[in-house]
């Protein structure tokens, strides 16, 4: 305890405003964020302040950004990523279950508890007409997928689906032309990962048009560890 509360006026209500303004100093900010998660009134306060403060930019004139920016953004998000180290470490996944029948024959190794006691990363292999190596890191919600064998049919793209138990498939994204997909999953999607089945379908360029799979299932895996 710093005794700060005794010195400064406004209590948690003023903290909420400072937080919305981005001037709440560390380590108070961190402590405040922990409270936000459990105190809806405080979160509501922050939301209301944020709405009000956002009006301070209402009169700023809009300006078209140069056209190159969007290409840079797309490249940053979907361009060929650096070859990740973990990929070099996982040669055993490549073709490990080659020739396995399509349904349910898959290898999952939820091993490698790291020394810090973090939840283990989840690795899975999807098999069928093609083989894909999947790695998911729960703390960072980072998903990395590599097509290790096979190719998308001519003029089609490969789309990865998360199939939560008893629910409709959710798209995890479309693999790039290089056969890779790396992204940070939104929290809502990441929550569905444990116990879910992953599958890959071929879809028209750009991915399934209505957010539901339309093509043939090309590979799938066993349920991810819960």
């Amino acid at each position: 305890m710093t005794g700060r509360e005794e010195d400064l006026p406004g209590g948690a209500e003023a903290d909420a405003a400072e937080y919305a303004l981005g001037v709440l100093p560390e380590p108070e900010r961190e402590a405040f964020e922990a409270r936000l998660a459990t105190e809806p009134d405080l979160a509501q306060d922050v939301a209301v302040w944020t709405e009000y403060f956002a009006t301070l930019v209402d009169h700023f004139p809009a300006r078209e950004p140069p056209p190159a920016i969007f290409r840079r953004i797309e490249a940053a998000l979907h361009g060929p990523p650096r070859k990740p180290i973990w990929r070099l470490l996982l040669p055993y996944l490549v073709g490990a279950v080659a020739g396995a029948t399509m349904a349910w024959v898959a290898m999952i190794s939820g091993v490698l508890l790291d020394p810090e006691g973090q939840p283990p990363e989840v690795r899975a292999e999807l098999t069928g007409d093609m083989t894909l190596a999947v790695r998911f890191d729960p703390p960072g919600r980072t998903l990395a997928v590599d097509l290790t064998d096979g190719a998308a049919p001519e003029g089609r793209v490969l789309e990865l689906w998360l199939i939560p138990a008893g629910r409709a498939p959710l798209s995890l994204g479309v693999l790039g032309a290089d056969g890779r997909l790396v992204r940070v999953l939104p929290a809502l999607l990441a929550e569905h990962m444990p116990g879910a089945v992953l599958a890959v379908t071929d879809e028209p360029t750009g991915g399934a048009p209505d957010g539901a799979p339309t093509g043939k299932i090309r590979a799938r895996g066993a349920p991810l560890p819960s």
Binding site: F60, P65, F70, E74, G173, P186, L188
Partner: peptide, 25 residues
């Protein structure tokens, strides 16, 4: 949020001028 890249492009077209205006200002 569902990784829809076309939606992302549309969102960019709709909102980037406002956000760029803020960055510039």
């Amino acid at each position: 949020a569902m990784a829809d890249r076309r939606a992302f492009a549309t969102l960019y077209v709709r909102t980037s001028a406002k956000l760029y205006g803020i960055c510039i200002r």
